[in-house]
């Protein structure tokens, strides 16, 4: 079992003829993901270097292939538009890898997707992977451990993260300990994004194969505080967490906005306190994320 994506997910890549789009489509196919086509406006009609049909629009692609998920590598100025096109074509899940999208573009796109019931992962994220079944994104596949793999020691976790490479770090620490992963979702580091901690926590809570959940947050905003409150009320599985940026200088990265709205929240300290008071196991070092999860699962450090 898993959430959002599995071996039956039919994926297209928007921006398949670009360098990054082509490279990562190849990587995903190699991992075993079921890619059925690509979109490149003005370049449709032929085949991609992977032998996939290339379409001029998402609507054509969906009609011809029955795709239900998309991986977007369109450059930032057109990325929000690409997401809206996918939603309009009836795509169920949009995975938006592109970084550097203007915030107000995402404000508009998110509302557009919500109105059509399309789920969004990202932007500015590594994507989503159900190990052994489907990889939609740029994460290195080999670091993951599928549930049921010979090296797995019986427990599997779900992973939700605002950071890319820090996710790989956490996954690696789990895999090397024999903790498998059901699904790992990188929700991205942008202020306005798609699925957030709470929606994914709910999915993992309802996924029978997921034994525990790791959430990786960072400074800025109040998503982690909201997630902590949700965990306290609704999540009955062990949750481990790490917050990046405990030593980051204030004001440099998070700026004014988050703090104004929330009245002083948004610091690592406030997030860690909220998480701990919700009974979440917080790793104090980024090197201890796997060990903290193992302990919470009763596997011993």
């Amino acid at each position: 079992m898993s959430i959002l994506v599995d071996k039956n997910t039919r994926v297209i890549c928007q921006g398949i003829t670009g360098k990054a789009g082509a490279f990562h489509t190849a990587q995903c196919i190699q991992y075993g993901a079921h890619f059925v086509g690509g979109v490149a406006p003005g370049k449709g009609g032929g085949r991609s270097e992977h032998g996939l049909p290339v379409f001029n629009s998402c609507h054509e692609a969906v009609r011809a292939t029955g795709a239900d998920a998309t991986m977007i590598f369109v450059p930032a100025p057109g990325a929000a538009d690409a997401a809206m096109e996918a939603a309009d074509a009836g795509i169920r899940l949009v995975v938006l890898i592109t970084e550097g999208i203007p915030t107000l573009d995402m404000v508009k796109a998110r509302k557009f997707l919500d109105d059509r019931g399309t789920k969004l992962i990202g932007p500015n994220c590594p994507g989503i992977i159900t190990p052994g079944q489907c990889k939609i994104g740029i994460m290195p596949g080999y670091i993951h451990l599928p549930a049921g793999d010979a090296k797995a020691k019986g427990k599997a976790v779900g992973l939700i993260s605002r950071s890319g490479t820090l996710t790989y770090e956490a996954v690696w620490q789990c895999s090397t300990r024999g903790i498998a992963q059901t699904t790992c979702a990188g929700i991205g580091g942008d202020p306005v994004k798609g699925l957030n901690f709470i929606e994914l926590l709910e999915m993992f809570q309802n996924d029978a194969a997921t034994d525990g959940i790791i959430m990786i947050g960072e400074i800025g905003g109040t998503d982690e505080e909201a997630a902590a409150a949700y965990v306290k009320q609704h999540v009955r599985k062990p949750v481990a967490a790490f917050i990046a940026g405990q030593t980051a200088p204030p004001g440099k990265r998070m700026g004014h906005a988050g703090a104004i709205i929330s009245g002083g929240e948004g610091t690592a300290a406030s997030k860690i306190e909220a998480l701990k008071s919700a009974g979440i196991h917080v790793a104090s070092s980024p090197a201890d994320m796997g060990a903290t999860m193992a302990k919470a699962l009763g596997m011993g450090a």
Partner: peptide, 12 residues
């Protein structure tokens, strides 16, 4: 590489 890992590297 990566903002989250960069922040965590400072933390550690």
């Amino acid at each position: 590489n990566g903002a989250g890992l960069a922040m965590s590297t400072m933390d550690i």
